[in-house]
């Protein structure tokens, strides 16, 4: 019985048998109250400054950031962006906020699909749940209308992020996430900071290892 052995060993090391009620209470409290640890001053600013910080940090992490005046501009901006990359196929999260946009207007330039991603896909478009200014990090999570494969398989990952969804530190997203997914977390929560990379060959950084080679963030008001 490995489990019992392991626990017995830990308790022997801690010089007690079962934990005391006080110890249990300490643990319960920590799990329920979830106190925050030190939050770096960098991520504690007015919202405008956080948006600016997000953009700066995301670009530093080699993400492209495209600012749009409205969500309606997205299909056109996506088409333009993919054209630059000589791509013309797009797999879309089936999120209605994305699918209901005017894709018809660009259908000659971009071929849209709604499905999970497959090997060989050129580009995907998903909606970020949050942006974390501290490190220019996107947060996305799996749900029926936003499968996780979209975030990893295609060569280009396009992500829509609303400025309202930008927060300072990681901690602010945890609270929002618990609200958005009460009871338990979504199966997969991704924090993404720039496109895939590796330095495994001679410690020289190469972009585009197994995940997307490009990460494009469309920032909408």
């Amino acid at each position: 019985m490995s489990r019992a052995d392991i626990f017995a060993n830990i308790r022997r090391g801690l010089r007690r048998s079962e934990a005391t009620e006080a110890q249990r209470e300490t643990v319960r409290q920590r799990l329920q109250q979830r106190p925050r640890n030190i939050i770096p001053s960098r991520s504690q600013h007015e919202h405008d400054a956080l948006v600016e910080l997000f953009v700066r940090m995301a670009r530093e992490a080699a993400a492209e950031v495209v600012e749009l005046d409205s969500l309606e501009q997205l299909p056109c901006a996506v088409a333009d962006n993919l054209e630059q990359k000589q791509q013309h196929e797009l797999v879309l999260a089936s999120d209605s906020a994305l699918t209901e946009l005017g894709w018809a207007a660009v259908h000659e330039r971009v071929e849209c699909h709604q499905r999970v991603a497959q090997v060989g896909d050129q580009a995907s478009l998903t909606l970020a749940f949050a942006g974390i200014a501290e490190t220019g990090t996107l947060m996305l999570f799996s749900r029926p209308d936003s499968p996780t494969t979209l975030n990893f398989l295609p060569d280009t990952h396009l992500v829509v992020l609303s400025k309202q969804a930008i927060v300072g530190p990681y901690e602010d997203t945890w609270d929002r996430l618990r609200e958005a997914s009460p009871g338990r977390l979504p199966r997969t929560v991704n924090m993404i900071t720039g496109p895939s990379r590796s330095a495994d060959i001679e410690q020289k950084l190469q972009m585009g290892a197994h995940g997307p080679r490009q990460l494009v963030i469309f920032l909408i008001p």
Binding site: R115, S142, P144, P147, T188, T193, P195, G211
Partner: peptide, 23 residues
Amino acid sequence: TGQEFTVYNTLSSGNRRPDDQDG
């Protein structure tokens, strides 16, 4: 690595949810 943050930090909680398309 001296990075500000690792590129992918991924939380996995259990198995795929009933209506999820992948996982």
